[in-house]
């Protein structure tokens, strides 16, 4: 059974003036971790809000856990864990009371599991939510999303605000939920995050789903920006090897854009006097321009 299924899902705002998403067809299987990748304003949050029945589609159909997202919304939400993009929890409550309040909506809570997550995220539940840092609010929201071991996790930009250590912990929590069959729908604009935990990714831009790819195909692209610092002049023939898609001369050396593995390039560069190499991930916009320009 598909856990999420949308058919020709379309949402316009302001009486048709602003496009949210258009003709979105998604099929997400049980146990899958699906990454929804796109720049800001691409339609990721609109899709999530449609799945949660917070907004209603202009046209098209949405099924979540085999049920109608609007008619059966309460039934669906019993089995959903949601992490919003921006966390707004009752500020006057302590973390403990907040946890207790939201537990009141769920029927089954594994308290041992909850205690384990609290420990792993190093979360102090005695403090008031209003006194939490952004990262701690994010941790509490993660706890609230996973506490009832939901069948479906919907995560909107889940690691924003988390430090690298807690990001790692978060990834391992999500990967663990997969073991008991939880499906995860995760929106992100961080490619590395998607590559790390997702099985498949959907690329969305300007409200339209451009492509769905298996993570291996996606990883294979391994798009990188490489800045080579050197005073030496390198012949273009040594740089324009398979996998290098762009070469630019800069004031301090060269700027290359590559896809796939970079072994051949490193071998070629080894012959020259290189002072430094900086490797970074290009912006999503750049990646879209290069691979998904449709």
């Amino acid at each position: 059974m598909n856990i999420i299924e949308t058919k020709k899902l379309t949402k316009y705002y302001l009486r048709g003036k602003v496009l949210g998403v258009k003709n979105l067809n998604l099929e997400i299987a049980e146990g899958e971790i699906f990454g929804f990748i796109g720049p800001n304003g691409a339609g990721k949050s609109t899709t999530i809000r449609l799945l949660l029945d917070l907004i209603r589609p202009t046209s098209g159909k949405i099924k979540v856990l085999g049920l109608d997202a609007h008619i059966d919304t309460v039934q669906i939400k019993k089995q959903i864990g949601y992490l919003p993009g921006e966390i707004f929890l009752p500020e006057s409550m302590t973390g403990k009371n907040c946890l207790k309040y939201y537990q009141g909506f769920k029927s089954e809570i594994d308290h041992k599991y909850v205690a384990g997550i609290v420990k792993r995220l190093d979360l102090d539940l005695s403090k008031k939510v209003g006194d939490y840092s952004k990262g701690n609010k994010q941790k509490l929201a993660i706890l609230l999303a996973v506490m009832h071991k939901p069948k479906l996790l919907i995560l909107d930009e889940p690691t924003s605000g988390l430090d690298p250590l807690n990001q790692q912990e978060f990834y391992s929590i999500i990967l663990e939920t997969k073991k008991w069959g939880t499906t995860t729908f995760l929106s992100t604009h961080i490619l590395e995050e998607a590559q790390r935990i997702c099985d498949r990714v959907g690329i969305i831009k300007d409200g339209k789903l451009i492509r769905i790819e298996n993570i291996d195909d996606f990883k294979h692209k391994n798009i990188r920006d490489i800045h080579i610092e050197t005073t030496q002049s390198i012949p273009l023939s040594e740089l324009k090897i398979p996998g290098v898609t762009k070469v630019e001369r800069t004031t301090s050396g060269y700027h290359l854009t590559t896809t796939g593995t970079n072994g051949a390039l490193l071998k070629s560069l080894a012959k020259f006097n290189i002072e430094d190499i900086k490797v970074s991930e290009p912006s999503l916009e750049e990646i879209f321009m290069r691979f998904y320009k449709e």
Partner: peptide, 14 residues
């Protein structure tokens, strides 16, 4: 306005 309603309505309550 404050977006607090999102999380409340993501709970199983109509």
């Amino acid at each position: 306005e404050k977006r607090t309603i999102d999380f409340d309505l993501s709970q199983p309550i109509s």
